[in-house]
């Protein structure tokens, strides 16, 4: 199980829970199971998010491994200028 933190307004779409426990070994499984367990998150996750693992930002990185040792945050997809 990994613990994943959701940003404030995203938590509101997951029954108000800012932190969730998910059975996932990589980002692909994490996003898939988040959407399955909390359908309110699905549109946001499908639109695209960034995943922070121990402070490092990942976009589109399905197979990045995660474990219970990692700090994982779901964030709006980081872009720039």
């Amino acid at each position: 199980m990994v613990k994943v933190m959701l940003w404030g307004s995203l938590a509101a779409l997951a029954e108000g829970k800012p932190e969730l426990e998910i059975e996932a070994k990589n980002i692909k499984q994490l996003l898939q199971r988040l959407a399955e367990d909390h359908p309110g998150l699905k549109p946001v996750l499908e639109k695209g998010v960034s995943v922070s693992i121990d402070g490092m930002m990942y976009n589109d990185a399905w197979f990045e491994e995660i474990s219970s040792e990692n700090e994982i945050c779901i964030l709006p997809r980081i872009e720039g200028g």
């Binding site: 121990d54 402070g55 964030l75």
Partner: peptide, 16 residues
């Protein structure tokens, strides 16, 4: 008040 390594950022992740 500066953020340093180990600070939980205002947007979520902890800084390295």
């Amino acid at each position: 008040n500066a953020a340093t390594e180990g600070t939980r950022s205002s947007y979520g992740p902890t800084y390295n």
